[in-house]
Computed example of a mutant assay.
Amino acid sequence: MAKVKYYYDSETLSYQKIKTKKGQKIRRVLLSVLAAVIFMFLGFVVLTPVFESPKEKELKRELEFVKLNEQLHNKKIKQLETVLHDIQERDNNIYRLYFEVNPIPEEQRKAGFGGVNRYKALEGFDNSEMIADVTKNMDILSKQLYVQSKSLDEIVKLAENKEKLLAAIPAIQPVKKEDLTRMASGYGWRTDPFTKARKKHWGMDFTAPTGTPIYASGDGKIIRADQNSSGYGKHVRIDHGFGYVSLYAHMSKYNVRKGQKVKRGDLIGFVGSTGRSQAPHLHYEIIKKGTKINPINFYYGNLSPKEFEAMQKAAEIEGQSLD
């Protein structure tokens, strides 16, 4: 029941009913309806995010999960890129420099990602750009890792060859210094003991008593142990690989046979004076790729700097050779 409102009439000294006009009633009704509409709209805008449907909640969680995974993957990619960059720097500036091979160009490390759009299949989905970026970064990283892996395989082979080379190179004096009488003659022009003419002496002569042990100056394989080469008498030749051959002449007897493999320091024979020789000594030569070279540069394995300097001075004296 609607409430009846009154007002006090000062002229009649009594309360009179307030009569509402029809226009006012209509206005009040319209204002009420308008207020209700505004309230409903505000309620929809404000309350809708609070009261999400189960499907909307699931989609929202999936989106947040995708974004979180993208952040984690990007972080891991950055970490891997940092580590890979460090390896690439060492590869180019240390490993390859040491083994005297050319560094890998930057364009080769990152080649193969231009032209065709290989990520077209990822287009047309929610977050396509984000997923394509992560996939592309992973592909680039995988390619660089593959290139670096192949490079390290090459470095390993170079290291193995370097190790073999260091073991094979004739690097020690073939007669122990305590067994030597003296270093009689060096590489170069010398007086022939038989003809007295100047002649190129292709090795070094180590004077020592007959029967003094002779040792292999590097790892290798015996390719000759005979006396069928003019002037050398009983002699041994060792093929060290990498183009190096060492020759030991005028032996009294052998301690090896053809085809036998030897290590640096192995006993291969004994000093003598067989062949074209004036006195017991070892004539020692080094051949590299068919060319006879000065053995003086190959004694870093067992001589001190002072001992090497003394030997070098003795080898430079242009006297008479013993063969």
Rank of each mutant, 00 (worst) to 15 (best):
A310W: 04
L47I: 10
S217V: 02
K76D: 15
I286L: 05
P295W: 00
M40K: 06
K288C: 08
V156D: 10
M251Y: 07
K177V: 11
A314T: 05
T48K: 14
I77K: 01
S277M: 05
R28A: 11
N102P: 03
A216T: 03
T12R: 09
V37W: 08
Y146L: 15
V66Q: 01
G259A: 09
P54K: 12
R90C: 12
R182H: 10
E285F: 03
V50S: 09
K19Q: 10
R118K: 15
D226A: 07
V4E: 07
K19I: 10
D133I: 04
T274V: 05
S252I: 01
K234H: 09
A314L: 13
K253F: 08
E62R: 14
S53T: 09
I223G: 07
V245Y: 04
K136G: 02
P213F: 01
Y215L: 03
Y7M: 04
I286G: 01
I155N: 08
I104A: 08
H281G: 05
F99Q: 05
A216D: 02
A35N: 02
L267E: 06
I169Y: 05
I286N: 01
E89S: 11
D226L: 01
G124W: 05
Y248W: 11
Q320T: 15
P209K: 11
S246Q: 06
S273V: 04
K177G: 03
A314Q: 14
I104G: 09
R190N: 05
V116L: 15
T12F: 05
Q79N: 10
K157T: 12
K306P: 00
Y187K: 07
K143S: 15
P49T: 00
K164D: 09
I214Q: 01
Q260T: 02
K55C: 00
M40S: 11
T291M: 10
G259D: 13
R264L: 01
K78H: 10
D323H: 13
R109M: 15
F99Y: 15
I26A: 12
K143W: 06
K162A: 10
Q278T: 15
V256H: 01
F125Y: 14
I94P: 00
H235C: 09
D9P: 08
L247F: 01
I155E: 07
E178S: 11
S304H: 14
I296N: 12
G211C: 04
Q320R: 14
K263V: 03
V33R: 02
D9V: 06
G319D: 08
F65H: 09
G43I: 06
D86I: 08
H283V: 11
I26K: 12
E178I: 06
L13V: 08
S230T: 12
G23K: 12
P213K: 00
S53M: 00
E318G: 04
V116I: 15
N69H: 10
D179H: 11
R182S: 11
T135I: 02
G23C: 00
R61V: 04
K196A: 09
N255P: 00
V83M: 06
Q227D: 15
K3E: 08
T48P: 00
I286P: 00
F44D: 03
R257C: 03
K75H: 13
T274M: 05
R90N: 15
N297G: 08
I131H: 03
D266P: 01
A197R: 14
L42K: 03
K177C: 02
E11M: 07
I87H: 11
K136F: 10
G319L: 07
K3T: 11
M311P: 00
R61M: 07
N74L: 13
N102F: 13
E58M: 13
L30I: 13
R182M: 10
